[in-house]
Design a protein around this nucleic acid. Structure first.
Length: 421
RNA sequence: GGAGAGAUGGCCGAGCUGGUCGAAGGCGUUCGCCUGCUAAGCGAAUGUAUGUUUAUAAAGAACGUACCGAGGGUUCGAAUCCCUCUCUCUCCGCCA
């Protein structure tokens, strides 16, 4: 959520910034509604004050006739209050609804661009591997060795579900442990195991709702929503809290399964394990002082990249342009790993700085000093990393000519004496 | 799932026979005094959000409104009474 004062005082600037995102937002409407809202609030508050004063007089009034007339007077005021309050409530509901639909403003460093075709790969890491044979895909290897069971996955759960078996299941578990261990022991994150289901407030807090409900699974009679990413439970741990500045920065790393309907990408990426309704992910979340947000973003990106470096996987960093920024993000970088079998750059991480946008929605504040005014904190997050695509990259990059997969050096400690799977 | 108890400010904890209660008291924190140093002692300050007016380079100031788990109701007036919901604790049942 944006600061209403920013819209109130610099409406044209806000409109200009949002134009860079190539989407529409009802800024003019909000601006007008804000003024109407404040006028109405003023009226209501004055009426309430009148009532309060009269009530205090009634408490002291001795004369029965005067008492009665004052009571009547308050009753009339109450009717007015009721009327005005109803109007105010309607105005505020609309105002809040519109405010929740306004996206975050981009950082000035974000390149202007219409859509993902204008994202900019800024740097490349680790050489692509040279193969003496034509590398095949992870799904061919997986099916041949019976380590991925697509048919049974579809049988028990439907399309876009698969079953990992045997060595691939073990590999995935090893990668999860490896990533968590690295972030927790090497990068200084606190490990978190959160619920995989959350209430609606959380999803509003981090910005998935109200706009993106169609990508979320939920239990309709208990207001329980499956998390689409650990960002949601982790960031919302601090919802409605005022943190001490000595608690900042907060670094959290969490493994969760993630659930997404992926309706909008129907038909896309249907082959393999690249895009499913359920996938595992290790997520990094930071809560920091606003002035530190950008610097923390680059540190977070480095932490995520470190996983790929330790696995010796070729990857690149892509700067996301304004038109491809997600709703809540002010600045975003994707990390894409190269998979030689399917010959694609796969997004394994999306690292975003939200500035105070999510904190405003989730009401996450901090105090600089004991006696200073609470301020909104900045939040950031990034995958560190998304499992299926790291699996694809490992399988396809480490495949051997005889159809096996060599276990990467960094993962050996998670296996016994095995060299290949 | 059944029975009962509870939810108050950073924390603890009064108030709950309705009326200067945004809320006693204590602890904590901050500032000042005192003091070889520290501790103790003494004094003062110390919730959040928002509106109006005013002011500034900023910060602010004055006044108002809302908030005692959430939402509704009764009343001239609700932390206090009534209803619904959520959560916590205790006991019983069930269970990975």
């Amino acid at each position: 959520m944006l600061d209403i004062k920013l819209i109130r005082e610099q409406k044209d600037f806000v409109k200009n910034e949002i134009a860079k995102l190539f989407i529409e937002a009802p800024i003019d409407e909000i601006y007008e509604l804000d003024e109407i809202r404040r006028n109405k609030l003023f009226i209501v508050e004055n009426l309430r004050n009148k009532r309060k004063v009269l009530s205090a007089e009634i408490a002291k009034e001795k004369d029965a006739a005067v008492l009665q007339s004052k009571k009547e007077e308050v009753k009339e005021i109450n009717e007015q209050i009721k009327e005005e309050e109803d109007l105010l409530k309607g105005i505020e509901e609309k105002f809040n609804r519109l405010m929740l639909e306004v996206p975050n403003l981009p950082e000035s460093e974000v390149p202007i661009g219409k859509d993902d075709s204008e994202n900019i790969p800024v740097s490349y890491f680790n050489e692509k591997k040279q193969f003496s044979f034509t590398p095949t895909t992870h799904y061919d290897i997986g099916e041949k060795k019976k380590f991925i069971d697509f048919n049974r996955g579809a049988k028990i759960s439907g399309t876009r579900f698969y079953i990992l078996r045997n060595s691939f299941a073990k590999l995935q578990r090893a990668v999860i442990n490896f990533m968590l261990d690295t972030h927790v022991y090497e990068h200084g994150y606190e490990e978190i195991y959160p619920p995989f289901m959350v209430n609606k407030e959380c999803l509003i807090g981090t910005g998935q709702l109200p706009k993106f409900a169609d990508n979320l699974y939920m239990d309709s009679d208990s207001d329980m929503w499956f998390v689409p990413t650990a960002e949601v439970p982790i960031t919302n741990m601090y919802r409605n809290e005022i943190l001490n500045s000595n608690e900042l920065p907060i670094y959290h790393a969490a493994y969760t399964a993630c659930f997404r309907k992926e309706k909008m990408s129907a038909g896309k990426d249907s082959r393999g394990i690249k895009r499913g309704h359920q996938f595992d992910k290790v997520e990094l979340v930071k809560i920091v002082k606003p002035e530190d947000a950008r610097e923390e973003l680059f540190k977070l990106i480095a932490d995520a990249q470190d996983i790929l470096n330790r696995l010796d996987l070729p990857h690149r960093l892509v700067k996301i342009c304004t038109g491809d920024l997600s709703f809540s993000a002010a600045e975003k970088y994707d990390i894409e790993v190269y998979a030689p079998g399917i010959n694609e750059w796969l997004e394994v991480s999306s690292c975003s700085n939200f500035n105070t946008f999510q904190a405003r929605r989730a009401n996450i504040k901090f105090k600089r000093e004991n006696d200073s005014k609470p301020e909104f904190a900045a939040t950031l997050n990034g995958s560190g990393l998304a499992l299926p695509r790291v699996m694809i990259a490992i399988i396809e990059n480490y495949q051997t000519i005889d159809g096996n997969v060599r276990i990467p050096e960094a993962l050996k400690q998670y296996f016994g004496s095995e060299e290949f799977i």
